[in-house]
């Protein structure tokens, strides 16, 4: 089994409650949590894959109990301590917070627009040759787990493990999260959109022609 965040296909979650487009945040601290997370990220101590993995590493009972932005804040706090940016004593308030060596990297108000506009593109040149063409039949890894690190980050959901599909699009070569989340390098490789019949994934699909598409890295796939 994988981690608690990998919930695609799970039963028992109940109805979805639509909401008005005007509702952006549900509590005053939500936008603060979002902004704090983005500002802390700009210190350059982690990449997006490391930060996703930090949230996934929350204890299952915390992951299930925390609201969305509570997960973000918990992940940020854990990464700050892991990187030695903040000490446990500072976090608990047992001592006064000291000026950090990273203070020169602080995101200033006038830098925000540029940083948000630049984003963080994930496409990279790669020496790994494209192995599949559009229309090729492929099968995903039978076990949806990181092959480099036990219990590590991966973007192959459990529900799509060992499933047969077809290459729908080629996205070029992108950073491999399974490596990048563990600071093992970006290891870029070909990335594809792979289409699966719903009947390949679910015992009781709703409709015979429904499909699910996932973006999957070449190393998640084998030819069939």
């Amino acid at each position: 089994m994988s981690r608690v965040h990998d919930m695609g296909g799970r039963f028992g979650d109940g109805p979805i409650v639509p909401e008005s487009e005007d509702v952006i945040f549900h509590a005053d601290w939500h936008p603060r949590a979002l902004a704090l997370t983005l500002a802390a990220g700009s210190l350059g101590q982690w990449n997006i894959d490391v930060s996703r993995h930090a949230r996934e590493c929350l204890a299952p009972k915390d992951y299930a109990a925390f609201s969305y932005y509570e997960k973000w804040i918990a992940g940020v706090a854990d990464m700050l301590v892991e990187r030695g940016v903040v000490t446990p004593a500072e976090l608990s308030g047992a001592c006064d917070a000291q000026i950090s060596d990273l203070a020169t990297k602080k995101l200033t108000a006038d830098q925000v627009a540029g940083v948000l506009a630049r984003g963080g593109p994930a496409d990279r040149d790669s020496a790994v040759a494209q192995a599949f063409q559009i229309g090729d039949a492929v099968m995903t890894r039978r076990i949806a787990q990181n092959v480099l690190v036990a219990g590590g980050h991966t973007r192959l959901p459990m529900y799509a493990a060992g499933a047969k599909g077809k290459i729908l699009r080629y996205h070029g070569t992108h950073v491999l999260p399974d490596s990048n989340a563990h600071r093992l390098g970006e290891a870029p490789e070909p990335l594809y959109a792979v289409v699966f019949p719903a009947s390949e994934l679910w015992q009781h699909p709703e409709h015979p022609r429904d499909e699910v598409v996932l973006d999957l890295w070449q190393s998640y796939l084998e030819a069939v």
Binding site: I99, T108, A109
Partner: peptide
Amino acid sequence: VKALETILTQKGLVDPAALDVII
């Protein structure tokens, strides 16, 4: 959230005015 913002601001790692711009 408030505690973490206070700690990071005291450490010189976060500018509350930048958070306002992001929001």
